[in-house]
Design a protein around this nucleic acid. Structure first.
Lengths: 188, 188
DNA sequence: AAGGTTCTAGACTTCTGGGTACAGAATAGT
DNA sequence: ACTATTCTGTACCCAGAAGTCTAGAACCTT
């Protein structure tokens, strides 16, 4: 018994991800959002409360999507290393957008000063490490990776490499060089 | 035949590094700078032209300082690996400020959108990789590191690990965990 | 088809970021 | 001591960021 919303909030959040990704949080104005999302300011603030809140929603959406992608990308039979390489390259956006990782950007921009962002980022990093860890463990069981290495620490190193590569990608490092770095990182 | 400046520009720049490091570029207001630097707005804009220009000066100052530190830290005789570990930990600010790396933060915040920042960052990354590369080469000559590895690629991987660790540090990861990650990364 | 309710567009308001202008203070040379 | 010059501090300015408010549109129920 009331007028229904003319847009799908999830679609808008998904769209907002791209905007924040390109511009960062501070550099994105409400006007930017209104223009690009194609909804009015009233709807924006009615539905999402504030720019900051929309940002956290976008960040969370992005994190989950990325981690699901990573998990499925590493699963399945066959050689692990090429899968790892590909997964890292995808995470860092090598060769396509070169925008780095939204979460990494967010952490670097606001860091601990923003509790909500810090929490989402911490969650993502934990999940990422866990995904890497289990992949490494599987690799060790199949004999592809030396069993001498502690999976947790190696997973952490992989994660650090992924994050570092994302930053380098954003800084404009060439895809070929990024590939070489990833190859070296995966050869643990 | 004119009134002399009552402050040393280099000292102020050095001080500004800390402010930008803690708060980021966008989140730092001219008022912040005036308050913390202890100079008037007139002097600020007279001497440094704009907030952005001061930022680039601070960033450059920081980069050079950090890289000099890194280079001297890796020189000298003795085992290379502990030196590397220590150098990486210092770069990422493990256990002290945990603010990550100013340059990394800057890249993640503004990225390619700011040509000056991008240039300084690229320079720093190149120099960092070069320092790592020559250290690795020395390690190979002394037999501490397997000669099968390509120094350039390994240096890139080390750099990525350093950057990633800096981000993780800023995200609030515990020093002990960061140490473990660095240990794994250095064991290439 | 009428009414209650919720959504929408966008004009409007507030506030602050970033910077300028200017009056006065401190010097070195003469 | 006087002056030309450059520095300092502060009041001021303007644009735009973030958010509010309201008139009216769209829908569901009955």
């Amino acid at each position: 018994m009331a007028r229904p919303m003319t847009f799908d909030a999830d679609v808008v959040i998904d769209h907002a991800v791209g905007i924040f990704w390109r511009q960062g949080f501070a550099a994105t104005t409400p006007q930017n959002l209104v223009d690009e999302l194609g909804i009015g300011k009233g709807s924006l603030y009615n539905t999402f409360k504030s720019k900051h809140h929309l940002f956290t929603l976008a960040l969370r959406h992005y994190s989950q999507q990325r981690m699901d992608e990573l998990a499925t990308g590493l699963e399945g039979p066959g050689a692990l290393k090429p899968r790892l390489r590909e997964a890292l390259a995808t995470l860092a956006g090598v060769g396509e957008h070169q925008l780095g990782c939204l979460t990494v950007n967010a952490v670097a921009e606001v860091g601990m000063a923003d509790a909500a962002v810090a929490e989402i980022a911490t969650e993502l990093f934990e999940r990422m490490q866990e995904i890497f860890r289990s992949a490494i463990k599987r690799g060790q069981e199949s004999g592809e990776i030396a069993a001498t290495r502690a999976p947790a620490a190696a997973a952490g190193a992989l994660m650090a490499a992924a994050i570092g590569t994302a930053v380098l990608a954003k800084a404009g490092t060439s895809p070929t060089q990024l590939r070489r770095i990833l190859d070296a990182a995966v050869d643990i």
